[in-house]
Every structure is written in C-alpha cells, then in structure tokens.
Design a protein around this nucleic acid. Structure first.
Lengths: 384, 384
DNA sequence: AGTTATTAGTGCGCTTCCCGGACGAACCGA
DNA sequence: TCGGTTCGTCCGGGAAGCGCACTAATAACT
C-alpha cells in the first residue's frame, strides 16, 4: 500500500542483507554497494542503530582506496540482539551450530546418534545440544530467534512432513513442528541436499554463482538445485531427487520402493560393501577416503566408477539446466577419484557446449555443509 | 542510482505491464490492482499519455461495482503507436505474426521454405513476410517496435549465434543480427522450445503456473523450462537440451555428434521412417496424426512407444525439478497416444510423489506456439 | 612540523514522489 | 429532482532521497 514506506523498507533490508552476507562494512561501502547516496545510507543506518538492529564496531577499517583518507567506522548486525541455530539431523549423527545473525558460528557440537531408530529421541537430543551450545556461545535462550533444520529426506512443502518411506521411524512426523515444540522458537526445515547447496552458495565455493547443482554423496544421494541464485524447491518442495533416477530396470530394490535407483549403486554403504571383501581391516568412509588419498588402486577404481555413474545422471540434468557449476559435497565429496569420475562422465555424456560451460568442484564445507546451510536458512527466514 | 526516479519508473512499468496482460482498464481499476492510490495512478497515466505510451479509448466501461456510479474512462496501450512481430524459423517453414503490444495478433502468414538449405534466403523471405504482414495489419514500418525470433537450434547467450553443428547451413550466422540488418528494428532471438514454453506460459495452458516443463516433439526434441514463472535459460543460454540425453551407448549417430541421443529415436522423421514400410500411401506427420485419431493400431503403438521413451527421460528431469505441469507441444504434441505414453512412463519412472504432483497435458497453441512465443518475447523486451 | 590530498560521516535545503481529503463529473434508481 | 455511487482531478502535506557543503581523521609529501 504505502509505496514510499515500502521503498525505505526495501532499502533498509538491502543494507541488512548486505551486512549479513558481507560482514562488517562502512557506511561508504554500503553506499557504493547499494547505489544509494552516502547521505541516505547514513540516515538508514542511524535508524537501524536506533532500533538496535545494527551496531557500530569498535575497530575501524581501512579507507576505500588504499592509503590515505579518514578511516571508516564499521557497522555490523547487532549480534547481542540474538542469534540463530542450525540443526543437522543425519542418519547416524546430530550436529548443531549456534551463530550470530551474520552467520559467524559461535559454538558447534556433534554427536553420534542412531537417528533412524528413534526420531523422537534424536530430536530430544538435538534440543539439548542446542541449549548447551547456547550456553557455550553465551546466548540467552530468549535471544535465539530461529532454528534452521536439516533432515535427510525430502519434505513436502505444504505439510512440512516427511514423505513416505525413505526415512524409517519418522513416518507421520513433522520434524519442524516437533523441534519447535521442544525449543519454542520458529523452526524452518529443509532437506540435506538443499541446505548443503545453500551453504556452498552463501559461504562456500558457489558464492556469487547463479546456476549451481550441488550433489550430496553420502549415505544417500541427493541434489540441491540453485537457479538464478535461488534454491529451486519445485511445485511441492521435493525437487532434487537425483538419487532416485533409475539406472537399470532390474537393479537392487531401493528404500524408495523402486528398483535400480542410482542411490543403490553409489551411496556410501554400497561402496563400503563393495570394497570390504578385499581388505583385512574394517573399512569406513573415513578410511576409504584415506586410502583414496594414498592412491590405493581398488579404492580409486571403485570411487571413480561411482563418480562415472553419478556423472552419467548429472550429465542429463546439466543438458537440461546448463548450470555454471557442479559442487560435489557429502562425506564422499572431497574424494579426488570420485570428482574425476564425475568430470569424465559429464564430459562424455553432456553436450559439448554444456560441458564446456561447466566446472565440477568439491564442496569446501565438508561435513559442516548441512549445519551451515541450516544456519543460513534460519538467517534468511528471520530477515525476510 | 536515483532511487526515487526508479520507484516511479517501476510504478509506470507496473501499469504498462498490467495493461499489456489485462487489456483496457480504468484508472480506478489500475489503482486497485497496483495498490497505488487513485491520485498516483492518475498522475502516472497522464505522464504515459503525454509520452504516447497509452491512450484513452473512446468507449467507456462499467463502474466497478455493478450499476450506479460514473462510468470510467478506459486507457490502453497505444496500439496505433506501434506493434511487434514474431518470426518463427523452422527447418522447413517460416511463419510470421504481427501483433499489437497487448499481444493480439493482427496478421499472420506462413510459407514453406527449405530453411536448412539456405539460411540467408530464408531470412530474406522472413523479412519480406514481416513487411507484407505489416501492410495487412495496417501498421507503418516505423511503428514496428521489435521483433521476436524463433530459431530451431540452441543459441549461445553471449554471442547470440547458433552453436556448432545442429543446424546445417547456418554456421557462424547470428540470426538476430542478420534479421536486424534486414528490418532495422531490434530483434530478439531464442530457440523454439523456449519460445513454445513462453507461449504456453503467457497465452496457453500454462498461464499462471510457476514450474512448467514444455517439451517440443517435432523434427527435433527440445525442452523449455519455466521455473518460478520465468524461463530458465542457463549459464550460457543453452538449457533445455532434452533431445540429446543419451539413451543407449551404441545408438544412431546424432547430428549433435554424439550417439544414441533421445532425439534420434523419437523425432518426427524417425517415426515416419518407422511406420512407412507398413503403409501404401506416403505418410506425413499430418497423416500420422489423423491415423492416430482413427485408432490405427500401428500408429498408436509407435507413438505411444515414442511417448514412453520421452517419458523415461522426462521422469528423470521431473525427479530433479518437481514441476507442476508438463506441456507437450510441437507438431506431434497433440497426439493422444504420445501423451498417454509419456504419462505412463512418467508414472512408472518418476518418484511417486513427483508423479502425483504432476499433470501432463497437450499444448493448446499447436503450430502457432513458436510464433506466439516470439511475439511474447518481443513484447517482454520492449516493456522491460 | 606543516601542508596537501583523500576518504568518511553528517546537517541543510531542495526536488521528487506518493497519499488522503475534498471536489466536481457522470451515471443509476427512486 | 434528488440522494447514492463511482470516477477522475486538484491541493496540501508528509516522506524519501540527493547534492552540496562542512567537519573529521588519516596518509603522504615537503
């Protein structure tokens, strides 16, 4: 309605989002970045300071161009005003991070939990970990503004509940609602691949890239798709199910109910199972990555074969989407052999022009991608 | 820079786009639709009238609520001020439409031309047809504001030229530039699948739908992907190459250079080739569609098989994108058997939740989709 | 040490934009 | 003919942004 107020509101938001993504900045920098005049920015910042949304920092920065000139006063989002938490629920672990509103992580905690076994217990545990991390970060519970939550299964956009089948022991559970009941703050949930993508987009290798496909290779296989700089969730919020494209008619039966899903061929448990017979020691994903780094022939072969299979499916997707970047994440994401396999397959099966425009890189956030993404989600939602 | 001027500019644009999509409206209606005050709308409209962008119509409308009240003066985009043209270049035809700036087609013309043979001649012909249609529509050449152009091959976003190989006789040609040289107005080009998608999105079955995959099945196979209500063109503008996902390692060699492309299995020429031996008469796409309507067993089988193959590839894409609607277009798009095949395959290979959220329908614009999309593109670009 | 150059932040006056209220215009129904 | 209703416009006021001028703070140079 009030078009002018909306204008100012938008400009205020432009400043806060800029501060959220870039960290502390001077008013002059803000003016340059937003295209507004220094005067206007100054006035907006005063308003934000008056409302305790931002604060001036103690330390001053460097003037814009190299040497001389008055050093600027930096302003930043008012951390004391509160923070957010990210909760990453995996199949076998729970990870929690507490961050200020600029996304800087203040405390982090991880625990091994058999999540599939008992969803309720895992959520209880997660809630305790959030409270504990708040104490470590020195934040009062009242200052926790929102929680982002990562669940290892697709979520229906409307019901916000987990869809059939994939995650046993969680049927009929609305994870966001459950955690909300335990923590009494707004909880926003999304799946692991989407949040991994969001993390690499906001804080990782994909910063500033418009069209990105994030592939998570871990105990499952999923994709988070970023188009035009925004996460694409699809009509019902279940976009990105790359793990369940069918590779063969008669493959292994998948937990999704179909047969021959990509996930049954290349997910971590399957790779361990493939390799185990040839090794005396008990293999784990960690150990396999070590062996891969040591140029163990068997491991390299299996991982690069898996990469090739993933790359095959990815090539089709890239032919359709023509992204600029593919980020490989998840516990296996940093394997060089896997990446090489993907690259080789994409180069072979994607159209030459598509492949030429594409880079395939490993995620730089590793295991922390999901929790960082959960934090980013929470921040995005409270500043929206 | 000037944030206030930008605001007014945006409001002006809001009014013109509203007029473009809704047709003639009163100032009061515009105020209700934009949320601006009547005063502001009045002032903006005066400005637009002064600049000859809109005009007051002779006939007046009905007051907002039923009966009583002063009848409004309707304003509309100044059609006399000009129009746009759409040019659809196919492999074997050229089609041209001239429309006013609301998208209402004033004149249309089609000709059979062997485009692949001589690109330059086809463009000469297209330019003549545009001039002729302008005469028919009663528009002066000086009032042609822009031309949208459809080419049957992917375009590189940066060079605006046709990529390697796919279209013979057009190498090194920048179609938009060539047509611009001949008509001396801005020309905006895109490929057939994208413009078909745009057409169905703006004037066809996909109106108002956010996430749509448009599949064009004709002499080639391509997809136009609409996400969040906007056409997704990808990092280099070549998104949507569904026809070149590989189905088999050892299939027929495709014009793109790869082997086993989907397009080699299901495009129109291949289907004619498959069916011809069993029929005495000479088959054409038209005739095949007739036979399909008459429940000819052979045709139905071949078309539904083709649909199944397409649906197989589409299912993977839908698993990743989770669209709300798939529109089947192109010369074969209206075949019921093809649609049934696609539906059956999507139902089988897509994840159950994805399939449940998805409708598969035929396009309602038929052969005219590309040219309508070209018109929409031109309108979008001049009002941007 | 003093001077000059450069950048940062802010107060002032002006322009631009939008809105609410008031008013005449045009039409309907009683 | 007279209220009732909607439309379009004019006017005054409030709000937002901007250019300009001025001070502040520092570096580099003489």
């Amino acid at each position: 309605m009030a078009s002018l107020e909306r204008l100012r509101e938008n400009n205020r938001r432009a400043i806060t989002t800029l501060l959220a993504s870039e960290g502390p900045m001077s008013r002059a920098d803000l003016a340059r970045a937003t295209g507004l005049s220094r005067t206007t920015v100054s006035s907006l910042v005063s308003e934000l300071i008056a409302h305790d949304h931002v604060v001036e920092t103690a330390d001053r920065g460097r003037p814009h161009k190299g040497g001389s000139g008055r050093p600027p006063l930096l302003v930043t989002l008012s951390t004391p005003g509160g923070g957010v938490a990210g909760v990453d629920i995996g199949h076998r672990h729970v990870r929690v991070a507490v961050a200020d509103r600029s996304g800087a992580v203040l405390a982090e905690d991880t625990a091994a939990v058999d999540v599939d076994e008992d969803g309720g217990a895992a959520l209880d545990r997660a809630a305790r970990m959030v409270r504990q991390s708040l104490r470590v970060a020195g934040l009062a519970r009242a200052n926790l503004h929102a929680v982002g939550m990562c669940v290892p299964a697709p979520l229906d956009r409307r019901s916000a509940s987990i869809r059939t089948g994939i995650l046993p022991g969680w049927r009929q559970l609305s994870p966001a609602e459950e955690l909300h009941r335990r923590l009494d703050v707004p909880v926003f949930a999304d799946n692991d691949a989407n949040l991994g993508a969001l993390a690499e987009l906001t804080r990782g290798v994909a910063r500033g890239v418009a069209d990105v496909v994030y592939v998570k290779v871990a105990s499952g296989l999923g994709a988070g798709i970023v188009l035009g700089g925004r996460l694409h969730r699809g009509a019902t919020g279940i976009a990105g199910e790359l793990g369940h494209v069918q590779i063969g008619e008669d493959g292994q039966v998948c937990r999704c109910g179909n047969r021959g899903c990509l996930e049954t061929l290349v997910a971590a448990p399957r790779l361990v199972e493939l390799l185990q017979p040839a090794y005396d020691e008990e293999l784990s994903v960690e150990r396999i990555l070590e062996l891969d780094g040591d140029d163990d022939a068997g491991v390299r072969r299996v991982l690069s074969d898996a990469g090739r299979v993933i790359g095959r499916a990815l090539a089709d997707l890239c032919n359709s989407l023509n992204p600029e970047l593919v980020v490989v994440g998840g516990s296996l994401g940093r394997s060089a052999s896997l990446g090489d396999g993907i690259r080789s397959s994409v180069g072979r099966y994607a159209q030459p022009d598509t492949a030429a425009a594409l880079r395939v890189v490993s995620g730089e956030l590793g295991d922390r991608a999901e929790v960082v993404g959960a934090v980013s989600l929470a921040i995005a939602r409270i500043s929206a």
